[in-house]
Design a protein around this nucleic acid. Sequence first.
DNA 1: CGTATCGGATACATTCGTGTATCGAACGGA
DNA 2: TCCGTTCGATACACGAATGTATCCGATACG
Lengths: 217, 217
Amino acid sequence: MADRANAPAEPGPRRVTKRRAETRQRLLQAALAVFAEEGFGRTTVDQVCARAGYTRGAFYSNFETLDELFLAVWEHRSTELITRTREAFEAFEQAAVKDVDGVVTHLLRAVPLDEDWYRVSAEFTAHALRTPELRRVIVEREQAIAASAMPFLFAALAEIGRTVPDPEALGQALVAVHDGTALQCFSEPGNTTVQQRRTSLFAHVITAYSSESRQQS
Amino acid sequence: MADRANAPAEPGPRRVTKRRAETRQRLLQAALAVFAEEGFGRTTVDQVCARAGYTRGAFYSNFETLDELFLAVWEHRSTELITRTREAFEAFEQAAVKDVDGVVTHLLRAVPLDEDWYRVSAEFTAHALRTPELRRVIVEREQAIAASAMPFLFAALAEIGRTVPDPEALGQALVAVHDGTALQCFSEPGNTTVQQRRTSLFAHVITAYSSESRQQS
DNA sequence: CGTATCGGATACATTCGTGTATCGAACGGA
DNA sequence: TCCGTTCGATACACGAATGTATCCGATACG
């Protein structure tokens, strides 16, 4: 009650220590792995902690409920992937692209296909649709993805003399195509045809949503 | 032990009665609803039985495990949807289509968007990726979908003078687009723009994967 | 260094779900 | 109508996961 220091009615932990951040991090990492293996719904607090090298005490000291952890894991990992993608794009900066296929190659190389992540996000998606306050989280994330990747795509297209009349429509289309084709690739891992079709679907969509402007830069 | 009648070492129930089929059916139906609401992973045997108006005895008399029920529900519902779609197509038989947009309209009207089903199948998908012997089930289903719907699509396209060079590629592309856009529609229910974009994405893809042959029929 | 707070470990009580074994009623065949 | 079989209900025992309360080692700070 009689807190003298800087305690303005904040019930959270007063001083966030270094150790705490480390623990939290390891729990997030472990949870992602366990969710991918067991499924969120069948995952137990103990499994996550064991995989991270803790006991259940660590969990209850950092999270209230498994749902909270699920959300944290998903947000953490998805921002991580967005960052990684942007970095990959920046690395391509000066690489020359000649045509739409070249753009697609870049795009697909920057956007990784991660089966573990697919499993987890598929289940999170279903979970979010069941939880009203989580719906917005999903659309925000999709917008963030588009906002982060599109500029690079435009730049690449501009290089080959193409412009995009309706950027948002293309963004939405590409996200849909990415999500939809991901499953196909995972369910037939060895099948190269599926992956080629994925590539050409991207090419077709990008072509359809962009138009030849004039000269190449 | 000393079974005299027609018991050729078959451990399953000898005579499948009418009541049994009815029970099974109601369990499947109830399970679908509960899975959609609670998620498969968090669903309990008792919840399913209660919703169907039974007690747990009914379940254990019809299924071994929840996983088995999950698979049964998914297979039942997805074949049901395939049938329904084909019927919808057949009803359109003589309706006149003028252009690609007309074809898309038909297509989207025949293929329903069902959020409950999306939730369940998303989770089933993740579940199947975790379970080696279920991967093939998914690809088989996707092939069945394509095989069932494509003929109608070709017929409609033929009517407006278009042919499809690579049918399988188009089938795969459309399934991917359907799956990918479904989530977008569900996460922003009120947003009509999203749905329009979905429609035009279908149109673009169909256009890109078909070519003008000659005259209309 | 010494001390106070923090963070994770441990122990405990409790709830919840499962699987099985048994019972009784409905059903189907003659 | 009667009898045997089937199917779902009920009861029970067990295991597993949760949440909390408490303890002790680690860490930050003066």
